[in-house]
Each structure stands twice: as structure tokens, then as C-alpha cells.
């Protein structure tokens, strides 16, 4: 278990540090790169939590697609090295965030969580690690939500196109 603990704490430090970097550094491009680090660290957490499939998806979609999209977007900003400026809400935002953190920590620590019974832990680990169960659930119990999400993605794609297409007379 030591290895797991060491990995966990290491990942925690990396993730929190990189996340702080995302919201604090001035250079927007570095922020984007630090965000990729956060994504990868979260993927690592997923592995630790025996959700291998999610870890792969995290790397593919977040670290791959979304991060790249964001990097493209960063290219828009005029002054990238000084693009990530704070606004005037730093203090209230920090206070709100700190208060929320306190509440969340208090709840997490105070709640009596119901652990998985020892007898079933093996079984649960097997099911969670493999992707077969997930695939089965997505096309059976959650089929409707699955279809809805697919429509949502289609709609989002069309919406993004419509937003970016420009006015007809300007289109080539």
C-alpha cells in the first residue's frame, strides 16, 4: 500500500500545484500547459481509483482534444505572456472559494461513509477495473441518457458551427 500512498500524495501535490499555476500564472500559454498537467494527474487518480477506462478517456479527451482546442483559443489572445490577468474580484472570489472548501472538507470528514463490504471488495475491484461492465451499462440501463448525450454533442457541434460561420454576406 505504500506505493499507492506515495503515488497518491505525489499526484495530489502535482495536481494542486498545477491547478494553482493555471489560475495564477500570467502567461496564458503556460497556464494551458499546466492545465494539461492537471488533466494527466487526474488521469493518474483515475488509475489509482481503479477506473482504467476513465483514465484513458481522460487522457484522450481532456489532455488530447480539449487542451488542444484551448491552446488554439489561447492563440487568439493578443498578449499571451501577460494574458492571464486577474480582475477586481480576487478577494471575494478567494474568500468564497475558501469558505466553500471549508464546508466541503468538513462534510467529507464528518460524514459516516458506508464502505464496500470486505466480502465484495474483490468483485467490485474486478468490475470497476474492466471496461466491459461500463460498456454494458451504457447500452442497457443508461441507453436513453447515452442517446441524449449523443444528440447533445451533435447539437453542440452544429451550434458551434452556426456561431462561427459568420453572416451570410461575409461568407466566401
Amino acid at each position: 500500500m505504500l506505493l499507492v500512498d506515495i503515488t497518491f500524495w505525489g499526484l495530489s501535490v502535482v495536481a494542486i500545484g498545477a491547478a494553482l499555476g493555471v489560475v495564477l500564472v500570467r502567461d496564458l500559454f503556460r497556464a494551458a500547459l499546466l492545465l494539461v498537467v492537471v488533466f494527466l494527474a487526474v488521469a493518474g487518480f483515475f488509475v489509482l481509483l481503479s477506473a482504467q477506462f476513465l483514465a484513458v478517456v481522460q487522457v484522450l479527451i481532456y489532455a488530447g482534444a480539449i487542451a488542444i482546442l484551448l491552446v488554439f483559443a489561447v492563440m487568439l489572445t493578443k498578449d499571451v505572456p501577460h494574458g492571464n490577468l486577474p480582475n477586481r474580484l480576487q478577494v471575494p472570489a478567494a474568500m468564497v472559494a475558501a469558505l466553500l472548501l471549508a464546508v466541503l472538507v468538513a462534510v467529507a470528514a464528518a460524514t459516516q461513509w458506508q464502505p464496500v463490504p470486505l466480502a465484495q471488495q474483490e468483485q467490485v475491484a474486478v468490475v470497476q477495473t474492466g471496461s466491459a461492465g461500463l460498456a454494458n451499462l451504457l447500452v442497457s440501463d443508461y441507453a436513453l441518457a447515452f442517446e441524449a448525450v449523443s444528440v447533445l454533442l451533435l447539437g453542440a457541434a452544429i451550434g458551434a458551427l452556426a456561431l462561427l460561420r459568420g453572416r451570410p454576406e461575409q461568407a466566401p
Binding site: N87, L89, P92, A93, V96, L99, L100, V103
Partner: peptide, 21 residues
Amino acid sequence: QVQWYGVMIAIGSLLILAGYL
């Protein structure tokens, strides 16, 4: 200011949460 609204939403949620707690 969208983010001002965000702060307000966050404060509101906090208050609701506090109420529950």
C-alpha cells in the same frame, strides 16, 4: 459582470449549504 454574478451564485449556494448543515 458575469463573474460578479458568479460570486453571488457561489455565496448563495454557500448560504443554502450552510442552511442545510
